[in-house]
Design a binder for these strands. Sequence first.
DNA 1: TAGATTGTTAATCGATTAACAATC
DNA 2: TAGATTGTTAATCGATTAACAATC
Lengths: 228, 228
Amino acid sequence: MKSESSRHDPTMSQSHDDVSPAVIKRLPRYFRYLRELLKNDILRISSGELSRLMHVTASQIRQDLNCFGGFGQQGYGYNVKYLYGKISDILGVTRGYNAIIIGAGNLGSALASSPIFEKRGVTLTALFDVNKDIVGSVISGYTVLHMDKLDDYVASNKVDIAVLTLPKEVVRETAEHLASLGIKGLWNFASTEIELEGSDVVVQNVHMGDSLMTLCYELTKHNQDDLE
Amino acid sequence: MKSESSRHDPTMSQSHDDVSPAVIKRLPRYFRYLRELLKNDILRISSGELSRLMHVTASQIRQDLNCFGGFGQQGYGYNVKYLYGKISDILGVTRGYNAIIIGAGNLGSALASSPIFEKRGVTLTALFDVNKDIVGSVISGYTVLHMDKLDDYVASNKVDIAVLTLPKEVVRETAEHLASLGIKGLWNFASTEIELEGSDVVVQNVHMGDSLMTLCYELTKHNQDDLE
DNA sequence: TAGATTGTTAATCGATTAACAATC
DNA sequence: TAGATTGTTAATCGATTAACAATC
């Protein structure tokens, strides 16, 4: 019945290797909107209503959600709490991942002081830096550790994610070192792409600059259109 | 010869309203790689070489670049300097856009202290905040101004882009106010989407949190795969 | 039951890749 | 000229939308 999508392992609720990248990229957005609905005590929503809210087609919403299982109910719609829980599970919010920040400069501190981790079930556990002026200082309740304590720290603490907020020049070697320590997720803010050939390390490159450039492109296009 | 893509206005080098979103999203990445090549004194590259570097198909590169005109030369490849210049033009790097930062907290300061604007031809001209403790302090050479000076400032200075690094709760009203002042580009770091119906304001929402969630999804998927 | 809305298949649309003639 | 590589068309692939039967 549940089609081909749930395979092998019968004990696990769902497994979904084959979900398209396009769908996956949209999941965090569903997460955000559902959280907002929940905050406003809206406990039930149809794909039609959600489509108006999110400015996407109802068809896409139903298609997307169905990649992971039938979360709705005909004639009723979706239970917001239930759906939010399911999507949280899929995204790993309930897994209790731990993160450390490598590079406690402006951006590193900004992230440490923000609720960005907590909101997504990720726990920040430490910050590292090489700068003597920064090491030992306290940022958002964390004492910044020196990088030479990193190996020991990772050996004795569970670390799932390393956040890379350090200069472009040292990103590559740092990433390789972190991978060698067994850290499986890298969140990279340096404007260079990390390539770890043939490793099982997952990398997300942020590229804020690309976003600024797209904005500039659109500004430029608008201006041009006005002239024509 | 130049096909349908360059239309109307004969004085303007190119106009290209009809370029697909997929192509546009990739332009900043070309920009980054070409800059890097230039830095390494590589003055000539073929789509084949670039494809190996960027991990995309040569076909896609040629297709993408051709949306804006024939920048290459058969039998030779692409002149890196020339191509970099062209892409810079398309992206608006040479337009001399000015930006202001609204919200001089951790993230605002981090952006102000980074080369992110300068690298893309954007000039940061001022920072604003409402917090008495922050207003008047100097961040990366800029004295933080109080928000009540904003209207005057925008009236007497060219401001193309406003960077929104302020709390989610005030983003909507601030965005509307900025739009009413005639600012045409908003770069939004709050984890909420700005909708300005029917205005000619261009918005880029950054959503760093979505990136973290995608990382968590992939970590989770990896772990599951291991179990199967 | 009747009405509403999902789950799902089929149709459309857009984006990517392959192939090759044009040409430097 | 011969070799290389683009520009461009045609073929493939993937993602989105429309439609409707299943069903709560």
